[in-house]
Amino acid sequence: MKNHFQYILVLAVLLSQLGAVFAQTPSDDLMMKKREICLAASYETGSWNQYWEGTRLRENANIGTFSREIIMPMFAYGITDKINLLAGVPYIATDATGGQLVGAKGLQDLGIAVKAELFNRQVGPGKVSFLTTAGFSFPVSNYLSDYMPFSIGLKTREVTLRGILQYRFDNGIYARGAFAHLWRGQSKVERDYYYNNGSYYSEWMDVPNALNYHGAVGVWLFNNSLKLEANYMAVHCLSGDDIRIYNAPQPTNKMSFDQVGFFGQYYFKGIKAIQGLGILAYYSKVIDGRNMGKFQSVGAGVTYQFKL
C-alpha cells in the first residue's frame, strides 16, 4: 500500500484546533514503509452563511457569507514499517461578505504526530488492523484566537490520542472507525477580563477538551489506484459556554459539529514518469453543530512519495 496522504489528513485533525474541520479522512489504517517520505500539499475552500448560536441555527447579515481558505503543506516519514512520523502546518485566511470587520490570515499551528500500527492480521475474508496516533500541536504565529469567527484557530496547545480500527475485505471494500480524545490548553487573549457564565480576570481562556469520532466506508479499485470513500466525522466539546444571543463567539465556547463527506484519491501507478505522484479531492458538509458555522467545504491536493 503506497498511498500516504491519509497521514496528512490524520495530521490535519491533530493540527486543527477546530477539530478536523478540514480533514476528510482523519484516520485510517495506512502505514508507510521504513525510510519512505511523503510530501503533500492541499488547498481547501469552505464557507457558511448560517451558524449555530448555542444550538440555534441562525443567520447574521453583518457576516453574510463567511469563507475560509486553507493551504496545507505536510510531511510524513516512515521511521519503521510500523511507526510513522507526521508533521504539517496550515496557512489559513478568513473573510466575510457582510459587515465591516476585516478578515484574518496567517500560519496556524504546527502539528507533529506519531502513528503506530499495533495489530494487522487476516481474519476471515479480510484483514483487521488497529492503529494508534499520538500528537501535539502548538501555534506558530501571533494570530488572535479571540477574534471569532474570523480567528484562524484557537491558539492553544493540543494533545491528541487516537485509536483506529479497520476491517478490509480482500476485494478492496473496507469499513473503519476511529475515536480520539483532544486535550486543549489555554489560549492567551488580548484582554484581561471576559465573561464566561461569570467574570474572569485573566488574559487566558480555557479551551474545552473534545472527543472526535470518525466512521468511513469505502472501496479500493483498479489495483489499488483509486479509492472512494463516504465518511462521517464529529467533534464534540466536553465543556464550554454557548454564544450569547447576537454576541461574538469566543474560544471558551462549546464548539461541536457533525459532518458527512466524500473522498477520492488516485495514484498514478502505471506511469513511470510520475511515479509516486497522487491526487486527491474531497467534499464535506456540516450537518449539525453547536457554536459553529455550518460549513460546506471542498478540497484538493497532490502527494508525492519517495524512498530515501
Binding site: I79, K82, F136, W183, R184, G185
Partner: peptide, 17 residues
Amino acid sequence: KNKWIRLIFAFGLVYAF
C-alpha cells in the same frame, strides 16, 4: 512502538499543560 507512543504522548501532555 508502545514506548514511542507513550513517550510522545506523555511529553505532549506535559508540554501542553
